[in-house]
Computed example of a mutant assay.
Amino acid sequence: MRLFVLTALALLLGGGVPAMAVEPAAPMAAHRALYTLTLEQARASEVAGASGTMAYEVLDACDGWASRQRLEMTIINRDGQDIQMLSDYTTWESKDGLKMRFRMRQTTEQAVTSEVAGEASLERVGGPGTVHYSVPEDTTKDLPAGTLFPMAHTEAILAAARAGKKFITLPLFDGTSEKGGQDSSVAISSWGGPRPSKWPDLAKLPSGRVHVAFFDRGTSSQQPDYEVSMRYWDNGVADELDMDFGEFVMKGTLTQFAIVPPGC
């Protein structure tokens, strides 16, 4: 998941860890998941409580991956008022990692606060590319060499984990902002297994903890815009989420899960 080929990866993962055998890769899993969100930490006095759900779906669309993430949260402020927030994010990404379509719409109390839509492409795997926005305005931005789209980003993280890497940096474009691409800093720990899970399809797979920090490209800030940590299984399914929004942190627990058979 956001919560996402290999030519760029060979450059980005070089050095720092002795060579070792790489585990066979499990295929990326088309699946549906529902996460229950609870407030783990409030750093701002304005946030008195928070709860919500996040529904995530990724489908095998034969020549690409179609995904949808719907995040619903209720924030309780210090005056006891409930504030309803909704984010609806959909993408289609080609399996060669070269093309992507995206749309993201956020509302607060049913008023639209942000909306982004368009399509992006790379010249070649590991090469530069462009993103063309149709919303909020018609504009085109360049994407630097090495940029990955979300599913390719996830695959790169999992490949690094199998190879025993602990830290990697990956340029990312996911279509959640009109600012263009981002930089991501990834820390991987305790990769191994299998480990116990209530979900039989996951219990037989290796997994590990992954922490991803997202930064606006071209800024000197050392503070990430957003951070998320999770347990990633070898097929790209995530659980045990910690979603850091700055003023507060939400914990996400996988409460519904099902593998979706390929439709091809």
Rank of each mutant, 00 (worst) to 15 (best):
P262C: 05
L39V: 02
S134P: 00
Q84Y: 08
V17W: 12
R217L: 09
G175K: 01
L34Y: 04
R32I: 07
A33H: 03
T7V: 14
D63W: 01
G118S: 07
S114N: 15
C264A: 06
T169I: 01
L202N: 04
Q110K: 13
Y226E: 02
L39S: 07
S190W: 10
A187D: 15
T176A: 02
M28C: 04
L12Y: 09
A19M: 12
K179E: 14
N77A: 08
T147G: 05
G49M: 05
D60H: 08
T255N: 08
I83E: 11
G14M: 14
L37I: 08
G126Q: 10
I188S: 04
Q256R: 14
E119I: 01
S197T: 06
L158T: 02
F257W: 10
M243S: 02
K204T: 15
A8H: 09
E119R: 03
L12M: 15
F248N: 00
E57R: 12
E23V: 04
T154G: 13
P196N: 13
Q110V: 04
G64E: 08
A152P: 03
C264Y: 07
E123F: 03
L6D: 15
P224M: 04
T107Q: 14
M1I: 06
V131S: 01
R32C: 01
T255R: 11
D96V: 06
V47Y: 12
F149R: 00
D234Q: 14
K141Q: 12
T91Y: 04
E247I: 02
A238W: 02
T147R: 02
A213W: 03
V5G: 14
H31Q: 14
G236K: 06
L12R: 13
A159V: 04
L37M: 12
G14Y: 11
Q223S: 11
T108R: 10
S177H: 05
R209I: 13
F245Q: 06
P194M: 11
H153I: 00
S121G: 12
L37A: 05
D216A: 08
I188Q: 07
L122K: 03
M20D: 15
R32S: 14
V249E: 00
A156Y: 01
I157D: 03
K165V: 07
T107Y: 07
A163K: 13
M230T: 04
P194S: 13
P261D: 13
G180L: 00
G97C: 07
D225T: 07
K99A: 12
L254R: 05
M100E: 09
W233C: 01
P200C: 06
E227R: 05
A145V: 04
A238H: 01
P150G: 07
D201P: 01
F102D: 00
Q223P: 00
W233N: 05
G192R: 13
L9S: 13
S197L: 07
R32M: 10
M151N: 07
G193R: 09
D60W: 01
I168D: 03
R217I: 05
L13N: 08
I259A: 06
L59F: 05
S67T: 10
A29M: 14
F173P: 00
V249D: 04
D82S: 09
L170V: 14
E23A: 15
V260D: 11
I188K: 02
